[in-house]
Computed example of a mutant assay.
Amino acid sequence: MGSNKDPAFVISPVTDASAVEKHLTSLRELLQHCINDEPEISSLGFLAPLTDHTAISYWLELLPSVIGPGATTTLLIATAPGSNEVVATVQLARMAKETHSYKGEIRKLMVHPDYRRHGLGRRMMDEVERVAREEFALELLLLDTSKETPARQFYLRNGWTEWGICPEYAKSSSGTKHDCSFFVKSLV
């Protein structure tokens, strides 16, 4: 397992379909771990048990927004030391409206259970914030997460401001409705 300063993790953007094909098995497994292992605290938009087909379809259907001339989403992946296994991902969605072009939304930060609590989530967030600021000149980032998950405390510890809570906003992977915390972070 890595440490907070472990240079062996490689964080990189997905820039073509071959990268998804190369990593499709570990991307599927990562998503399934994040949904199926603890469905009562997962709030990634899928119900457990997440099947192989649904997990693979998710990654393949995401591709058009990630690659090509009309790409509006940046997908960052982290690979494990000494392998091609994807152990973490995060997405940066840029807003299509002209009047919203200064902001983006962080989506689906996922860290494989074997690599949690060792700084990899923080490294992923640091990198996606850097990409937002330096590559897209974004000034503001938004995200949401279940109020009842450890993710809420993670974002609070990492400089995000909770600006609101909406009761029963979404369902966990177990199907239980939960309150949702909304966060904002200024990049300027």
Rank of each mutant, 00 (worst) to 15 (best):
M95S: 12
L187E: 06
V20I: 15
A8E: 14
S12C: 02
D114M: 01
T15N: 04
E162H: 12
W163V: 15
S181C: 15
A78L: 09
F9M: 12
L44P: 00
K177E: 09
S3T: 15
L156A: 11
S42C: 12
N158R: 09
L156R: 13
Y115D: 07
G104W: 03
S12G: 00
L30C: 07
C180Q: 15
V188F: 07
L50I: 04
P7C: 07
I67R: 00
E129S: 08
A17C: 00
W163Q: 15
L140G: 00
W163L: 15
M95F: 06
D179I: 11
S181T: 14
E139C: 05
E85T: 12
Q153N: 13
E135D: 13
V184E: 12
T73E: 12
H118R: 15
L50S: 03
T79H: 10
M1G: 13
L92C: 04
I106N: 09
Q153L: 09
S186C: 09
S43I: 10
D16Y: 02
F182T: 13
K185C: 04
V131T: 07
L27H: 11
L63K: 08
G104H: 04
F183G: 11
R122D: 03
S101C: 06
L62R: 11
V14W: 05
K5D: 15
V111P: 03
V66I: 12
I41C: 07
M1F: 09
M125V: 09
K108T: 09
I77V: 15
S186M: 13
P69L: 04
V128C: 00
F9A: 11
D16Q: 08
S186H: 13
R152W: 09
L47R: 07
V10Y: 04
R116V: 03
